[in-house]
Write a protein that binds this DNA or RNA. Structure first.
Length: 1057
RNA sequence: GGGCCAGUAGCUCAGUUGGUUAGAGCGCACGCCUGAUAAGCGUGAGGUCGGAGGUUCAACUCCUCCCUGGCCCA
């Protein structure tokens, strides 16, 4: 047999065969080389961190990436798909800390940075093998020959160069900033890291009393201040009020309290006032916010030395709201962004009694020295209570809100003023916005909304990390004068500054680079490197340059591969890679880093919950792929819903969405291979010489090609996949193959050459369309059809064969076929029972030669002898007007319902006129209404004793009268059906010749006799014995034919064909 | 608290610039077909289109508010 069947192997087994074959053939390399001279299509792979197992969501993003890249490869473009690994950063350090069972910076430094970093480097590729094998298993084609690795010396040199570029434009600076800070990891987090770790948290809640001093101090009055961070109270230097709000002084149980007016109405402080809202106490005085500004108060906790001349004063702050708290906000400049800003503005004192490990140190209060801020909370509350400065009760978990946590170690973060290095992104915010406008986002609202909003509110990029395993910040500072600084942009420059060549085994990482001391060029001091490393997001955002070691080599390659035509990552990368790519491009370069982005949505579990290790609802990608096959998983992910919508991942529905489709495609190929035998593509007759149904299929195929190309060129992956699946199911399998089965099955002659050619073309084209989405089965079938891999084939092009009139004609035929089946169903008339006559009505636009030429096929499909296409004036059909509101509405506006109702009065003659394209008019209440052909759809009702079903203008009417002759033919078909079942029971091949014997009911035997030739042909019976049983048959059975019993026996015919 | 997205049949999803009786697949029920057969097809049941208002001759579609879920931000 020329066309190898797919056999009984599971999809997954077939895929393993393909994988072996691809590897042996080095197919990826051949596909890339084959298009090497094509137009470049640049794809950037967002580098995964290879220190964790890949998850099912990685399969999702990788499937989309793969589809787009394969599609462009098949278009003949030269597609860049270089693999990359993100190797630096805290996640790696955390893994190593866990493995070593150590915790925190002190432990790391005790171990030694050299040792620690070496372990980090080793751990990076721990899961690399798993990533690569999963990627390969799902058919994700990536060029692993020359991956970029962010810890490589060349890579780091490019990153240094970028930083130097920023510094030269005065875009790199050291500053103080209050940042979210993890006391466990000992590092501040960038805002995009912060985004990864918000969760609900129960914080303390405490109300404290600040005693006013100075002019308005008599009698004793207190400012009531609420905070969720009691540990910041010893560092209090000011209190802020909103100048536009109104404040009231209340007499509460003999104490005067000042709070904001509206808050007082509903605020009842737990443990105070017996649960009564403050607003129920008498108001002694009312103030504007501005009245309070400048008032002074006594230090709340005398534990930290603060110059009273530069502190303890009420300030004006617009950020104060009447939404929560008391309308008076405690200011601790070291522990809040707003706090720091307002203190800077007012020139007030800055204190920070908390060290980098989050512990109090150097205060005048020995009890809290050495406690972490979280441990200090209750101690501070206790002291306030003892000193009578606590209002109500301290609640350790009194306030639930969303709170930032460290995205890796899950510790609650604090806000903490740190010395830090920044990229001055605010200086080129407009450029980033401009670049963003040039990016095509899919879906667009991510770009304009989510990402655009984020850029609008951009703050400077906190770049430095006080950690170990990362690209070292290449800044050296003079020990004698810290204004003498140099930002090193290359290894040559470093050697030059050192005055000696770098060692052979130079490692730019810590701790080696830390020991590089440079003579200061501005004085005779010595320069040392700052100890920071940089944010790993900067590493990954540098990949367009660093993957080519730009600007040190590969200049041409770099230029050819900038910017990316396409990137694709999850929605969670909005503040991650999408940002770092764009920010570096805007800061250093003059062009956006990417042009098209597909943002894929999150994968949720069956119940719509986020997948998380904690929930134990994580889907194992390897097991899932092995169970269903990579193609099925890929199609499910692509076709289930638009890729940017959050998707509930339900393994069960993989079977529903894609397994059925793949099996159907497999069966369709199986059908072809069963009958094709020695047929060769060169035996194909010209398309125009084939039957109309073949030309129709070619027309449909053209349309699908257009649809898929449009969708995928526009990055709508889902619609393209759906269009292919729809075609295979509805057009190819369930119509073309179904109605043409007889042309293939021809044991006594040859299968129809044209039918084989048409099916071969359709299958080949489908495989090529499908290859980017389902690369395995499409390749297996394509190879069997053509002898070549689908992945070296071009993407199908439009052949110009589409025909509207032919599509309309076939649509009409299919509509009539299901109407006829439906009509039969209503009376239980089996399709096997032939009927004499069917009358059909179709819209005028359908009629014509093409429609007429399809009627024979329709007759066979619904098993009727004759079909008549009736005209509208036949008695069978009554015409009825159905108004088209859409067009009438445009003309009549408010009067539309009247005009629509009146249309019913159009006469049959008028309706025929409309069908002929002539406008008609009606009069009503002296008003003239004109109806154009498009204003009215002419419907047909059928009143007759025939079996009738209709759908709009389509009518099928079956003559249910059975003649004796029709009945006999029906019986003959029943007999054929029974014989076929017995053939199958006897396990005959489809072309086994038989002898057939029948005895029993005379009525059945008479029918068999009358249709002896037909039965013999259909069942491949070389001898038909009527009224006698065969001697020693292979199989013999009594069967029921329409209530009459006959014995049917079969025997293999030995006399040859 | 703010931004973005989603809410249509039991489940997964379509639904063009507002237009007539809101569709498909899966599942379910009942049939059909039986030379693609461990496949295939048809029919049916199943919907207050998240809720409430509004605009309009006409709202799943446009506007406002609200509810629920997801993501992001504060």
């Amino acid at each position: 047999m020329a066309y190898e069947p797919l056999g009984n192997a599971s999809l997954s087994e077939l895929e393993h065969e393909s994988l072996k074959q691809w590897q042996a053939e080095n197919l990826l390399r051949r596909a890339l080389d084959g298009t090497g001279s094509g137009k470049p299509f640049v794809f950037y792979e967002g580098p995964p961190t290879a220190n964790g197992r890949p998850g099912i969501h990685h399969v999702f993003a990788r499937t989309i990436k793969d589809l787009v890249c394969r599609y462009h490869t098949m278009l003949g473009e030269s597609v860049t798909r270089i693999a990359g690994w993100d190797t630096h950063g805290l996640p790696v350090e955390i893994e190593v800390e866990k493995a070593l069972e150590i915790n925190g910076k002190a432990d790391i430094e005790a171990l030694g940075i050299a040792d620690f970093n070496e372990r980090c480097k080793q751990s990076v590729f721990r899961y690399k093998a798993e990533w690569e094998s999963l990627s390969e298993r799902i058919g994700y084609w990536l060029d692993y020959d020359r991956p970029y690795v962010t810890y490589a010396n060349d890579y780091i040199e490019s990153v240094w160069w970028l930083l130097q570029q920023l510094a030269q434009k005065d875009l790199l600076y050291e500053g103080h900033k209050v940042l979210p800070y993890c006391i466990r990891c000992g590092t501040s987090l960038s805002s995009h890291e912060l985004a990864l770790g918000y969760d609900t948290h129960k914080s303390p809640s405490i109300y404290s009393l600040f005693r006013l001093v100075g002019k308005p101090a008599e009698p004793d009055r207190f400012l009531l201040v609420w905070t969720t961070t009691p540990w910041t109270l010893p560092s209090n230097t000011a209190i802020a009020v909103n100048p536009h709000l109104t404040y009231v002084e209340l007499e509460v149980d003999g104490t005067r309290l000042i709070v904001e007016q509206s808050i007082a109405q509903y605020t009842a402080v737990p443990g105070a006032t017996g649960g009564k809202p403050l607003g129920e106490f008498p108001v002694v005085e009312t103030y504007k916010g501005t009245d309070l500004v400048g008032w002074r108060y006594q230090q709340l906790i005398d534990a930290v030395k603060i110059d009273p001349d530069r502190a303890f004063i009420v300030l004006s702050g617009d950020f104060v709201t009447s939404e929560e708290g008391t309308g008076l906000v405690h200011i601790a400049p070291a522990f809040g962004a707003d706090d720091y800003q307002i203190i800077q503005r007012e020139g007030l004192a800055f204190v920070n009694p908390v060290d980098t490990a989050g512990r109090f140190s150097g205060t005048d209060w020995p009890e809290i020295n050495g406690l972490t801020v979280f441990e200090a909370n209750p101690v501070i509350a206790k002291r306030l209570e003892d000193e009578g400065k606590l209002f109500g009760r301290y609640q350790a978990k009194g306030y639930e809100h969303t709170y930032p946590f460290c995205w890796r170690c899950d510790s609650p973060l604090i806000y903490y003023a740190r010395k830090s290095w920044f990229v001055r992104t605010t200086a080129f915010k407009d450029k980033m916005l401009e670049f963003n406008d040039q990016v095509h986002w899919y879906p667009p609202e991510v770009g304009t909304g989510r990402f655009g909003e984020w850029l609008e509110n951009n703050v400077d990029w906190a770049l430095s990390r006080d950690r170990y395993w990362g690209t070292p910040l290449p800044v050296w500072i003079c020990q004698s004068d810290d204004s003498h600084r140099v930002v090193v942009g290359s290894y040559d420059q470093l050697a030059d500054l050192m005055g000696q060549p770098l060692p052979e085994d130079f490692d730019p990482h810590r701790p080696y680079v830390d020991s590089v001391a440079l003579p200061c060029r501005e004085c005779d001091g010595t320069m040392k490197r700052v100890t920071s490393v940089i944010d790993a997001w900067f590493d990954s955002g540098a990949m367009p340059y660093a993957q080519w070691h730009h600007p040190f080599e590969n200049q041409q390659e770099f230029e050819n591969h900038f910017p990316a035509d396409f990137i694709c990552e999850g929605l969670d990368q909005t503040r991650g890679w999408f940002y770092s790519l764009l920010a570096i491009a805007a800061g250093v370069h003059s062009e956006t880093a990417y042009r098209n982005v597909i943002v894929n949505g999150l994968l949720l579990d069956v119940d719509g919950r986020k997948m998380s290790k904690r929930w134990g609802n994580v889907v194992d990608p390897v097991a899932t792929v092995e169970e269903f096959g990579a193609d099925a998983v890929r199609l499910y992910l692509l076709a289930g819903s638009q890729v940017w919508l959050p998707k509930r991942f339900d393994p069960k529905s993989i079977a529903e969405v894609s397994l059925g489709f793949l099996n159907q495609l497999r069966n369709t190929y199986g059908f072809f291979s069963l009958y094709a035998e020695d047929w060769e593509p060169q035996d194909a007759p010209p398309v125009e010489d084939r039957p109309v149904v073949d030309i129709w299929l070619m027309s449909r195929l053209d349309r699908v090609v257009v649809a898929v190309r449009n969708a995928w060129s526009g990055y709508d992956v889902t619609s393209g996949v759906r269009a292919i699946m729809e075609f295979c199911d509805a057009d190819l399998s369930n119509w073309y193959v179904r109605v043409n089965r007889a042309r293939f099955w021809a044991p006594d002659s040859q299968a129809d050459r044209a039918a084989l050619a048409t099916l071969h073309t359709a299958l080949t084209t489908v495989c090529r369309l499908l290859a980017p989405a389902a690369p395995f089965l499409s390749d297996a079938i394509h190879r069997r059809l053509t002898g070549e891999s689908v992945h070296l084939a071009p993407f199908p092009t439009v052949e110009g064969r589409w025909s509207d009139s032919l599509d309309r004609a076939m649509h009409a035929v299919r509509t009539l076929a299901w109407l006829a089946r439906s009509a039969r169903d209503s009376r239980g008339l089996k399709v096997r029972q032939p009927l004499a006559h069917m009358k059909v009505a179709v819209p005028a636009s359908v009629r014509g030669d093409e429609f007429d030429s399809l009627l024979r096929m329709l007759a066979t499909e619904v098993n009727v002898r004759e079909i008549t296409v009736v005209e509208s004036d036949e008695s069978l059909v009554r015409l009825r007007a159905k108004p088209n509101y859409r067009t009438l509405g445009k003309v009549y506006g408010k009067a539309t319902p009247v005009a629509a109702k009146l249309a019913v009065e159009l006469t049959a003659a008028q309706l025929k006129g409309l069908e002929a394209g002539e406008p008609q008019t009606l009069e009503s209440n002296g008003q003239t209404y004109e109806y154009r052909p498009e204003d009215v759809v002419v419907e047909r009702d059928v009143a007759t004793d025939w079996l009738v079903q209709s759908d709009g203008p389509f009518v099928a009417a079956l003559d249910q009268h059975l003649t004796k002759e029709l009945e006999q033919e029906g019986v003959a078909r029943e007999v054929v059906n029974r014989v076929q079942r017995l053939r199958k029971e006897a396990s005959y091949d489809y072309d086994t010749r038989i002898e057939l014997g029948m005895s029993g009911s005379d009525g059945v035997l008479a029918a068999v006799d009358a249709h002896r030739t037909f039965i013999a042909r259909e069942t491949l019976a070389r001898r038909v014995a009527i009224g006698s049983d065969l001697v020693s048959p292979d199989v013999s059975e009594t069967v029921d034919i329409n209530g009459r019993q006959v014995i049917v026996s079969l025997k293999r015919h030995d006399g040859g064909p």
